[in-house]
Every structure is written in C-alpha cells, then in structure tokens.
C-alpha cells in the first residue's frame, strides 16, 4: 500500500515537472517570436496619443515645427526669422558640395537612391547586412569613404550643409522609417531605452524634458515636444550661430543635464535617432529649419 502511494506521489511530481517545463519553453518561444511590428505600431500610437492629449488644440502636422507648434510667442518670432531663413546659405553650400565630383570623378549621386534627391524621409534606416542603423549623415560619410575621401566631422560644417541640402530636396515628404526585422527591433529598443532612461548628475531623461514638462519652462526656455524632433534637422540654431546636426543637439542636451555626451554617430545616438524618427512617422520633412 505504501509502495503504491509512493509511486503515485512520484508520478504526480513528474507530471508537475513536465507541465512546468512545457510552460517555461512556451514562454521562451513567446519571447523569441515576439510580434515586434505590432509592438512598434502600439508604441507609435501611444506616443502620438500622449501629445494629442497633452496639447489637444495642436494639429498633428504641426509637430514638425518643434516648440513653435505649442508656444505662440516663440512661433511669432520664428515666423519673422523664417522671412530670411538663416539656413539658406548652408543649403547653397550643400548643393555645391553635393554636385562637386570626388577625386575619382564620382559624386554623391552615385551612392544614393534617386541620385540622393528626396530621400531624407527614409533615414535613418536599418542596414540588415551591417546590423546597424544608418543615418543620413553616416550614409554621406560612408559614400565619401567608399570613394576614397576622408570622412567629415559629424556635428557641423560641410556635413551639416550636405545634410541640409539633401533635406531641402525632401521637403513635404513624410517620415516612413521602418523596423523591418528583429535585429532592427533591438536597435529600436536600445534607442527607446536611451530615451526613457534618466542620466547625468541632474538625473533627467529625454522624456522628462520633452514629454513630461514639454511646453513648460526650464530656466528661460520652453521645452519642445519630442514628437517631430528629427523632422527639421539639420538646423540653424541662434545659440550656435551656425548649422548643426541632430547629434550635435543630442550632445548639447546631454551636457545640459551634466551627462557626458556620447560620440556623434556612435551606436547609442543613432539608435536614439532611430527610435525618435519612428515615433515621428507620418510627419513631414521640413529640414533644414531654424531654432532658438
């Protein structure tokens, strides 16, 4: 009788172990086979809905204008500045650089789809072969290096001018940045993590300034909404008195919260740009533009 009981007990334990292992493997399967496309779409909906709720009177299409979408006083000043756009010189310079041949006789038009005209909305994109995010600025330097030229500095100067010209040829096209596979989803997630993680001595995240307190004053400045951040770059910034790229702005933001800036076009900032661009899908490209 005792032996029978013992066997029954052992049988129940083994059955329990079997059920548990089945559940565990099912969980692991769910983790690897995650529906990342649905998750990204949900993120976009949630992100855009947050701003719609926060600034209910602001049209979605207005978010391409940064803080000028939500602050009337700043907008008036900005519109006056746009009468004589300070970035026009950069566009002209960029066009000259873009059409000038490399030493080998080729030009930038040989590196980009559609000869580099009207392609800004497709950047950043995920290069599955390289397994990394490619921004427009990185693609420009990749093109230079592929043609035996030295890469340009990433934050300002000729590269910002080239980027400004390429953006100007894409005006009015809408951001359509895709997350095509799981490797891309990983890069997207890294960017998302960067966006929401607090850093620096002031312990602020991107989301703290550009979601939670967007539209409110931080010292003398009103913070811009994160939705639409990348659409207008590169920008002529009055504080810089020159053009600068998005990664220059990232570095400035990081310094403001006393976090050491990471390298421009390093993987972390590229992934951040990727996440921000995906969140801004559906907005028009309006770069280059001007900012305070």
């Amino acid at each position: 009788m005792g032996l029978v009981r013992h066997k029954i007990k052992t049988g129940i334990m083994l059955l329990g172990l079997f059920v548990f292992s089945c559940m565990a493997s099912a969980d692991a399967g769910a983790e690897s086979g995650v529906d990342f496309k649905a998750m990204v779409q949900q993120d976009i909906r949630d992100f855009q809905a947050y701003f719609k709720k926060r600034f209910s009177s602001v049209e979605f299409s207005e978010y391409k204008n940064g803080v000028y979408a939500i602050d009337t006083a700043s907008r008036e000043q900005w519109l006056e500045m746009e009468d004589f756009p300070p970035y026009e010189f950069a566009v002209d310079e960029g066009e000259e650089l873009f059409t000038a041949p490399f030493t080998n006789g080729k030009t930038y038009t040989d590196c980009f789809a559609n000869g580099g005209e009207g392609v800004r909305q497709n950047y950043p994109n995920f290069d599955s072969k390289k397994g990394e995010v490619i921004t427009l600025e990185l693609a420009i330097n990749n093109c230079r290096q592929a043609n035996g030229e030295k890469p340009l500095a990433y934050k300002k100067g000729p590269l910002a001018a080239l980027s400004a010209y390429m953006a100007s040829t894409s005006a009015g096209k809408t951001f359509a940045v895709a997350v095509p596979n799981e490797a891309a989803f990983q890069a997207y997630k890294d960017g998302k993590k960067f966006f929401y993680a607090k850093r620096g001595q002031l312990n602020f995240s991107c989301a703290d300034c550009h979601m939670r307190v967007a539209g409110q004053k931080l010292r003398a400045d009103i913070t811009s909404p994160a939705l639409g951040h990348p659409t207008g770059f590169p920008v002529y910034r009055s504080k810089w008195e020159e053009m600068g790229t998005l990664h220059r702005r990232y570095a400035g933001c990081n310094k403001n919260i006393r976090a050491k800036p990471l390298p421009a076009q390093g993987r972390a900032y590229r992934n951040l740009e990727y996440f921000q661009s995906v969140m801004s899908n559906g907005l028009e490209i309006n770069g280059p533009s001007s900012r305070k």
Partner: peptide, 14 residues
C-alpha cells in the same frame, strides 16, 4: 544610476 536605468528604464515612460 546606470544599473538602475538598465533594470527600471520602463518606469520612466509617462
């Protein structure tokens, strides 16, 4: 801060 962010960054999603 880095270790906390690694484990709890989702807590910063508003």
């Amino acid at each position: 801060q880095a270790n906390y962010a690694e484990a709890h960054w989702r807590a910063g999603i508003p």
